[in-house]
């Protein structure tokens, strides 16, 4: 059963255009010019109950805007949207009890009151039964290690503590769906681990559906089975994380430090046009290649024929570089999904 269903979802912001300088200010006084910014430009998204979805894209791609529409904060400009059968911005109340949300940098907690009081307040707001509240609170305090700071007010918490408290606040009422907007941004590794294992456990034990935006690829690899990539307000990839990894597992990059200048660089890989060569500094090269077409040792051999090689190392492929290159438009994931490697994996 699908929990979230969005069709042709769109959000347009109107932005006033200001011209610089005093003349611009005076002009602005009389004529206001606007441009439409299509933050989310017609996306279709279906998420089933219990799924874990990473929603990624470069800054300004429309990730947060989407999540805010799903959670009922923003009203869509057009398109259809249902979350567990309700239209979020119209049936705000029904939607609110079904979701939990953590919006990155901004806390949901009351700034000046102790975390424990905040959670108590939320209990009353969501009308969580006393026994369920006790059970959840005890579990959260232990899993997230909140004992040390639960008596402090939000303003006194470190970023990592605050994020943990926010997570507890978002999950206190056992929501069906949790939206996490950059949940681990700026946190150190141990807190990240705590948060990830907590989220994983919620998904495993309670079947909580998860939609996560992040720039942290560790989050994605740790938590999510499905990857949705958005750019310029449009979904450019929607499929399993594994398929993406497999498709691009053939990508490698070799970094070389040369002792002298290459004699004829253009001739090096003239037979292999898909090999990419970047100069990353004086006497430094980065070469991207498909390991099924050419081996690393073959590449090094060819370079040595033209120049001294002082040092080299090979980058293992990671999801980060893959996604980055999708943003840059140098990879086509639709093709990737059909690539022989991915196909063989599926089989």
């Amino acid at each position: 059963m699908s929990l979230i269903e969005a069709k042709g979802l769109r959000k347009v912001f109107r932005q006033a255009v200001k011209e610089p300088g005093l003349r611009g200010a005076v002009k602005h006084l009389f004529t206001q010019r606007y441009v439409d910014k299509h933050a989310v430009d017609g996306i279709d998204l279906t998420i089933r109950e219990g799924e874990t979805v990473a929603y990624v894209g470069p800054n300004g791609a429309g990730k947060s805007t989407t999540i805010k529409m799903l959670s009922g904060v923003l009203v869509p400009t057009s398109g259809e949207l249902r979350v567990d059968g309700f239209v979020p911005h119209k049936q705000r109340m029904e939607n609110a009890v079904r979701i939990g949300a953590v919006f990155g940098q901004r806390t949901q907690l009351w700034w000046d009151i102790p975390v424990r009081e905040s959670l108590n307040l939320l209990k009353d707001i969501y009308q969580v039964p006393e026994d369920a509240f006790r059970r959840n609170l005890d579990a959260f305090v232990e899993l997230l290690g909140m004992e040390e700071f639960i008596h402090l007010s939000a303003r006194k918490l470190s970023l990592g503590q605050r994020m943990r408290a926010d997570l507890a606040a978002a999950l206190l009422h056992d929501p069906k769906i949790v939206y996490l907007d950059e949940p681990t941004i700026g946190l150190d590794v141990s807190v990240k681990q705590k948060i990830r294992s907590f989220i994983k456990q919620m998904n495993r034990d309670k079947g909580t559906t998860l939609l996560l935006t992040t720039h942290d690829l560790g989050d994605i690899e740790d938590l999510c089975e499905r990857l949705v990539i958005i750019d310029h307000g449009r979904i450019i990839y929607d499929g399993s994380l594994q398929a993406v990894k497999d498709a691009f597992a053939r990508e490698r990059t070799i970094h070389l430090q040369l002792g002298s200048e290459l004699a004829e660089p253009s001739l090096l890989f003239s037979d292999l046009p898909e090999v990419g060569m970047d100069r990353t500094g004086p006497y430094r090269l980065a070469i991207r290649f498909d390991r099924f077409r050419i081996t690393a040792s073959e590449i090094v051999k060819r370079i040595i024929s033209q120049a001294d090689v002082a040092d080299f190392h090979i980058d293992e492929p990671n999801i980060e570089s893959i996604i980055r290159r999708v943003y840059e438009g140098s990879l086509d994931l639709e093709l990737a999904a059909e690539s022989p490697v991915a196909a063989s994996r599926e089989a």
């Binding site: 009922g72 904060v73 705000r92 949300a101 806390t107 949901q108």
Partner: peptide
């Protein structure tokens, strides 16, 4: 400051 966000996701 976008602080209405958190109000809009609460059931009251």
């Amino acid at each position: 400051m976008g602080e209405l966000d958190r109000y809009l996701v609460r059931p009251m």
